[in-house]
Amino acid sequence: MTMRHPPLSDAALGIWPAYRRDVYGILVVFAASIAGYFMFPDSLALLTRIVSIALLVLSLDLVVGFCGVATLGHAALYGIGAYAAGIVCLRAGITDPFLLVTIGAGAGAGAGLVMGAVLLRTHGLPQLVLSIAFVQLVQEGANKASAYTGGSDGLAGMMPAPIFGMFAFDLWGRSAYLFAIFLLVVVLAILAVVARSPFAMLCRGAKEDPVRVEALGVSIRPVLLRMYAISGAIAGVGGALGMLATQVVGLDGVSFELSANSLVMLALGGVGSLYGALGGTVAFMMVEHMVAAINPFHWMTVIGGLMIGVVLVAPRGLAGGLDDLQRRMFGRNSETRR
């Protein structure tokens, strides 16, 4: 920037580099996903699943990183999105993928409102237990309502229509993966805007110092509840994507295990950073894929060690670790992320 330009206001100076960073970030994610398409043409199903879970982890980041909610039950929203899309596809004959994703998002948002209303009443341990009880309750409900959900057999036989009527969900998962990339980029763009909005700052403020924010005349719960609904919508998109890609919805989509794993992925990547959430998911699922192929129980040991290591060495996750590294190498304050 030279002196000849008219002086920019402080706000514009502060915001534009931030958005530029997001644009670059999304471009990098997009390029990496496209590269994955050409580099691993035989594992597109795995890549699609990674994107689907990444959406769940991103949505978890919104409630953990921005609202400070401790939850071990976030997969409930993912699974509800998947079941809603699957049931509508089977029963109502709606097969358009975009419409199904929208339905998944709506169901997730509704479930997010309910879950938020339950969880936001308490803090700490009771909140954690409430979240576990919530996901177990949803799983039990899905198991019992077998007329709609297929119970423990799961829901199968969905036949989503081709995307734009042209690209069918084929056996190789090509169109599913490209559809997944499209969803991921759209969600990232939305989240980049949300994360910089005054609304998200208010959520962070409420997380850091609820008393002071209340004193400013803001009633906290509706604000956090709104964030929970956004988070639920994104988790629902992830669930609907999983349904479209595999054409199966199972009880494991609403499980405590998936909830716990997604929290691990988030912490691994770095809480409060959208790209950290992405990186954590990719790292976790790649290691899982490789080690679990050898022996699923070695996988448990490895991931357990990984989790302990993250807490001891990089409490702010991969993203936090990279930030520190950048600061040390370039000697300047990179943008503060939390």
Binding site: G124, L128, V264, W299, M300, T301, G304, G305, P315
Partner: peptide
């Protein structure tokens, strides 16, 4: 391990102790 998480946020405690549980499952099964 535990002494590092006394007084830390719940998320860190959950992460570390679930990690211990995971590792215990893997080792015990082995």
């Amino acid at each position: 391990l535990y002494r590092r998480i006394y007084g830390k946020p719940e998320l860190m405690q959950v992460l570390m102790t679930v990690g211990i549980a995971f590792a215990a499952i893997g080792i015990v099964n082995y």
